[in-house]
């Protein structure tokens, strides 16, 4: 017997599958053809089956089914909790880039308008300068500076949302390394499933692609840390301990990502042990 989208064909006998496009779409997922000695379906079987009367009717029914199946599949793929988080982190990183770029540009522009102005010895952070420009300058420069400020405000909101969403989607990883950095790891790996499949050594250097490949190609030293450097435990550790801390943290993160993917809830007994170990290392104690 051969099963097709319109029904089951057994020799001369055809049993049509009755149901609408959505029901057909659900059924088609359960069907698997054997490819050994496979003979493609003949559309006239569908006519014999009574599913349609002519070729255009055949396509119309088949297309209805395919649309229903594809739309259902897309919906399911997007329903994964990490899909939106991924977009949010990438938007956040894009905004950071834009804000930095435009702030610098605005400062340069401002400097041209005011020959006596210099940022030397002032240590004015870029966002403070942008704020003062937006208040004092008229015309396009002031408007652009205002926009940069608004963009920065939106960025702060987004960062907060990313962090809280990361706490939901990846509670263990976020507890170890913070929501924002956890979300960046997720974005770099391409999702929670790919992240959970990465070995600890890969998580350790995630985001240090250039350094890693330079190391593999030439004799340069291997990178000790990628994105996880953004976590205080790594960048606050004394320089000679950083590699050690990064390695231990990455090991625990690999476990945390798997817990997040397969359990999806906070696992306190794992976290306590993990936090204690990394803190011990950072303090310079023997493990």
């Amino acid at each position: 017997m051969q099963s097709y989208w319109f029904g089951d064909v057994d020799g001369e006998v055809c049993t049509p599958f009755t149901g609408d496009a959505a029901a057909r779409a659900r059924r088609i997922r359960t069907l698997r053809a054997t490819m050994d000695g496979f003979i493609p379906l003949a559309w006239k079987d569908a006519v014999a089956c009574g599913v349609c009367s002519d070729r255009s009717g055949y396509f119309s029914a088949l297309r209805d089914l395919c649309f229903a199946a594809a739309e259902q599949d897309i919906r399911e793929q997007y329903a994964g909790k990490d899909t939106e988080l991924l977009q949010m982190v990438r938007t956040l990183d894009g905004m950071d880039e834009m804000i930095n770029l435009l702030s610098e540009r605005v400062a340069e522009w401002h400097q041209v308008r005011h020959p006596a102005f210099s940022r030397k010895y002032h240590r004015t952070p870029a966002h403070v300068l942008v704020k003062s420009i937006s208040q004092k300058q008229r015309g396009a420069l002031g408007r652009v500076a205002q926009q940069v400020e608004q963009l920065a405000a939106a960025r702060t909101d987004l960062a907060r949302e990313v962090s809280s969403r990361a706490n939901q989607v990846m509670p263990n990883t976020s507890a170890l390394i913070g929501g924002l950095v956890a979300a960046r790891l997720l974005s770099n790996a391409g999702g929670l499933l790919p992240l959970s499949r990465l070995p600890a050594s890969a998580i350790q250097v995630l985001g240090a692609r250039t350094a890693l490949f330079t190391h593999l190609r030439t004799k340069s030293p291997s990178p000790k840390h990628g994105i996880i450097f953004q976590h205080r435990r790594v960048h606050n550790a004394p320089k000679e301990l950083r590699g050690k801390v990064a390695r231990a943290l990455a090991g625990k993160l690999a476990i945390a990502a798997r817990l997040d993917y397969f359990r999806g809830v906070l696992v306190p007994e794992f976290l306590d042990g993990a936090q204690a170990r990394i803190d011990r290392l950072g303090a310079g104690d023997k493990p």
Binding site: T34, L41, A42, W43, R63, F67
Partner: peptide
């Protein structure tokens, strides 16, 4: 595909023909 009636869109992995074989005729 919505605007081209002779296009049958199939969401499937091309390396697994057994999954879409019940949809496709000989070509």
């Amino acid at each position: 595909a919505r605007r081209r009636k002779n296009l049958v869109p199939i969401m499937a992995d091309a390396s697994r023909p057994e999954q879409y074989a019940p949809l496709v005729e000989g070509v």
